[in-house]
């Protein structure tokens, strides 16, 4: 029973950390229609910056600044936002899929940096001894687990409330206007490039924040945690949960992480140890197929985007509704 409680807390905390990352992607894709194929890279930047800022000083690598965890999270988010702004500045004025290619490339390069810049990132072995929130409670597994769960839940809630406020603000309306009809928005004097760049950087901030929070919860990070599979997982979470819907993004994170963890358990029980690496590739095949199936059958996800209309307009008459595009 006690084991179940601490496992449940651990599982939910991990799932909610994915929800934060997923919320970041929702700002980019769901609200603005920007396709980021380098999610893993931006998450990694957040995690590594936070780890370097907060770990105690070490001899093997540069840094270990021993800062408070909150500063680390903030630094991680800002670093990922800065990087997003850089990539966005180069590609956002071009065709939509150039952004996809460039973010994919950025993630490849970030992976190389993690592996090769050993003096900062610790190389293939990564960074350990990242301070965990409520580390003083570590002797009491349940209290430690619950405290971390509450902290992660608060992070999700705050991120959700702030983002929800932003997308309902005039700024958020402009984003959706640009997504739906760029020329019309431009005619009204809004610069699509500037708004897209802002949304892309904001999404990057949230992803970096999620990556930092996750790294502190696990306690160690390595380049292997940030392979393209992570990008796929987060995408599947958002698409299944419902792109454009903040609550959908949170739900998708918990749901897909749940399916992932359960199928992982199944693999480890069904297959002997020597075949497990092979069998876990089936797990990823499944995610790829699920992503394609949802795109084909239910492109709006479980919780689709909520149509926000001005309250002065009143309910729409059926003949006014535009087909979903």
């Amino acid at each position: 029973m006690i084991d179940l409680l601490s496992y449940g807390a651990f599982f939910l905390t991990m799932a909610l950390s994915y929800s934060v990352i997923c919320l970041g992607l929702n700002v980019q894709w769901g609200q603005t229609g920007l396709f980021n194929v380098g999610v893993a890279g931006f998450v990694a930047v957040g995690a590594y910056i936070s780890a370097v800022l907060t770990t105690p000083e070490t001899a093997e690598r540069l840094g270990g600044f021993h800062m408070p965890i909150a500063l680390g999270w903030l630094g991680g988010g800002l670093g990922a936002a800065f990087l997003s702004a850089l990539v966005g500045a180069v590609t956002l004025r071009l065709r939509a899929d150039y952004l996809a290619i460039a973010t994919f490339g950025a993630a490849v390069v970030i992976q190389l940096v993690l592996l090769n810049l050993e003096t900062i990132t610790g190389g293939p072995f990564g960074i350990g001894f990242i301070p965990r929130p409520f580390g003083d409670l570590a002797t009491n597994a349940n209290a430690f687990g619950l405290a971390n769960l509450v902290l992660m839940a608060v992070l999700v809630l705050v991120t959700y409330l702030v983002l929800e406020h932003l997308v309902r603000s005039p700024w958020g309306r402009v984003l959706r206007a640009i997504r739906e009809d760029e020329d019309a928005a431009r005619a009204l004097g809004k610069s699509p490039e500037r708004f897209r760049l802002q949304a892309f950087a904001l999404g990057g901030f949230v992803m970096g924040l999620g990556g930092a929070a996750q790294a502190h919860f696990i306690g160690f990070i390595a380049p292997d945690n940030y392979l393209p599979t992570l990008t796929f997982q987060v995408w599947t979470m958002l698409i299944i949960g419902g792109a454009g819907n903040m609550r959908g993004a949170i739900l998708g994170g918990v749901l897909v992480w749940g399916i992932w963890a359960m199928s992982g358990n199944l693999v480890s029980q069904l297959f002997p140890a020597e075949h497990q690496a092979r069998a876990s590739s089936l797990q990823i095949v499944m995610i790829g197929v699920a992503l394609c199936a949802v795109l084909l059958m239910r492109p709006r996800g479980i919780l689709g985007e909520v149509k926000t209309l001005s309250r002065h307009l009143g309910p729409r008459k059926p003949e006014d509704t535009v087909r979903e595009g």
Partner: peptide
Amino acid sequence: KGSAVIILVMASFGAALAMRNLLEF
């Protein structure tokens, strides 16, 4: 279905993942 370009890109992404890991399997 008249899907947007970016949906096709995303689908190709999912297909790549499935195809690559099937090979690995």
